[in-house]
């Protein structure tokens, strides 16, 4: 077992974990952060995307021990109590989700995309989300949502 000290969605946790514990399993099973789902086992689908120290990572391809000392934000901590982050709002407004399983990862990836490119073109959005698979939407409304979010002032919730 290894000891880790992480801050997840603003709360600090100290835990003993098996080294083989994936970050996503730690989030889901130890912390109950089940808002972050698991979609594959090859780092392909991006459903499990979270932010580690402010940048997007696939939490199924990070060991919990690697995140030791890190700050993690999941979809559950993206916006404070009851509010929606502009990206969450834009996904809702633009019907950028259907079943919603890819949505947490897609939103976390899209937020990170705007961090590095605040005003992306449609093609840049498509390229920037290449690591996240959606089987429902055909991506068009996701692209629309990200563009809409980019056009929204960041305001209180980033």
């Amino acid at each position: 077992m290894a000891r880790i000290d992480v801050t997840v969605d603003g709360v600090r946790y100290t835990d003993e974990v098996e080294p083989r514990t994936l970050l996503v399993h730690y989030l889901r099973e130890r912390l109950g952060k089940v808002g972050t789902p698991i979609g594959c086992d090859t780092s392909s689908c991006g459903a499990c995307t979270v932010h580690l120290d402010g940048i997007s990572v696939k939490s199924c391809t990070v060991l919990a021990v690697q995140a030791d000392g890190g700050q993690i934000t999941t979809i559950e901590g993206l916006a404070p109590n009851g509010e929606l982050h502009r990206m969450q709002q834009a996904f809702h407004d633009n019907h950028a989700l259907q079943c919603g399983y890819c949505t947490p990862g897609m939103i976390m990836a899209a937020v990170d995309l705007l961090r590095t490119n605040p005003d992306p073109t449609n093609q840049e959005i498509r390229d920037g989300l290449e690591g996240n698979l959606c089987r429902c939407t055909g991506y068009q409304n996701i692209v629309r949502a990200v563009r809409a979010a980019a056009a929204t002032p960041t305001g209180v919730t980033g």
């Binding site: 889901r28 952060k33 089940v34 808002g35 972050t36 789902p37 698991i38 999941t74 979809i75 559950e76 993206l78 916006a79 929606l84 969450q88 996904f91 809702h92 407004d93 019907h95 989700l97 919603g100 399983y101 949505t103 947490p104 939103i107």
Partner: peptide
């Protein structure tokens, strides 16, 4: 209409069986 379903899905307040 914007979907009622979205509120929980965009915030991670989901009820997948694996949860």
């Amino acid at each position: 209409r914007r979907r009622k379903e979205d509120a929980r899905l965009v915030t991670g307040r989901t009820r997948w069986t694996d949860n």
